[in-house]
Amino acid sequence: MTTGEAGGSGAPAAVKSAVRTVLLLEHFAARPGLHSLADIQHDLGLPKSSLYMLLRTLVNLGWVETDATGTRYGIGVRALLVGSSYIDGDEVVAAARPTLDRLSDDTTETIHLARRDGTSVVYLATRPSQHYLRPFTRVGRRLPVHSTALGKALLATHSDDEVRALLPRRLEAVTEHTITDREQLVEELALVREQGYAVDREENTLGLRCFGVAVPYRTPARDAVSCSVPVARLTAEHEQRIKAALFEARDRLSVATRRM
Rank of each mutant, 00 (worst) to 15 (best):
T219K: 10
R258Y: 09
P220H: 07
R241S: 06
A224N: 07
D223T: 11
N204T: 10
L246A: 06
R252F: 05
L253E: 03
R209L: 10
S226E: 07
R259H: 14
A244R: 13
L246N: 09
A221E: 06
R241A: 04
V231H: 12
E237V: 09
R259W: 11
S254H: 11
R259L: 11
A232E: 14
E239K: 09
P230R: 00
L206K: 14
L246T: 03
P220T: 01
S228V: 03
H238Q: 08
V231N: 10
P220Q: 08
L246E: 05
S254L: 10
A245C: 05
M260I: 14
Q240R: 13
E239T: 09
K243W: 07
T205Q: 13
F247E: 14
A236W: 00
V231S: 10
H238N: 00
R233Q: 15
R250L: 03
Y217A: 04
P216M: 10
A221F: 01
R252N: 14
S254F: 06
L253H: 07
V215Y: 08
V229N: 05
E248G: 08
Y217S: 06
A221R: 07
C227H: 11
P230E: 03
T257P: 01
E248K: 12
A214Y: 01
E237D: 12
V255I: 13
R241M: 02
L246Q: 08
R259M: 09
A214M: 05
F247V: 10
L208T: 11
H238V: 02
T219S: 12
